[in-house]
Each structure stands twice: as C-alpha cells, then as structure tokens.
Amino acid sequence: MKIAIPVENKTLEANVSTVFGRANYFLIYDTEREESVFVDNLAQSSAGGAGIKAAQTVVDQKVNALLTPRLGENAADILEAAGIKIYQAINASARKNIDAFGDGKLSLLDEVHAGFHEHGDN
C-alpha cells in the first residue's frame, strides 16, 4: 500500500512536519516495494486554503493512508471523502513512523481541529 507523510526535508530521516498544509514535501512511500518518492507541496506558499490544496496533492498520489501529527477540518473532509485513512503520526522521523505504522502501532487520528482558514481579509 501507499502512504503519505508530510516532511520538511527529502530524506527518510526527516522529522514529520507538524503543519500538514504547509509542509515542504510529502513523502509517498510504497510499503510493498519499499520505495519512496518526494512530492513538492505546491500548497506551501498559498495565501489561503493550503490544507485543501495539499490534500488534493495527496489524493492525486492515490495513497491509501496519511500519517500526520494534526490536520485541519477541511483537509480531513477531503481525505475522508477520498477514502484515505488518517493516522496520528508520532513526533519522530519519517522512517520511524513508517516502521511504527508497519507494526500497527499508530492509531487513527481522532481529533481534527477546526478549519484553519488562512484566508485573506483580516
């Protein structure tokens, strides 16, 4: 299966990014092939709605799961609509998160914070 992880650097040792919508990259990891691809997060510099654009990027990568420390409501709605399972990442490297996920140690993200409207106007 394919999983996505928001990261700050293009390495498996990079820490998981705490802000999904404004992470630098998404690590797309194929658990069967053990292959990793890093996708630029084009939403990063969006003035508004970064979470949505980021979610769209993740959805378009056709992943099965997302590992993230937290997530906005809008992004969560989109990912859920796309049938992507969202797991609570641990505060550690991407690799450690992949291992923890493989061992079934990550739980589903139960708390989604309210929309993070980085809108204009005020």
Binding site: G48, G49, I52, Q56
Partner: peptide, 8 residues
C-alpha cells in the same frame, strides 16, 4: 483561494 477540490 484553494476553495475547490476534485475528489472521487
């Protein structure tokens, strides 16, 4: 404003 998305 990223107010649209295309899902499923």
């Amino acid at each position: 404003y990223n107010a649209l998305a295309y899902i499923k």
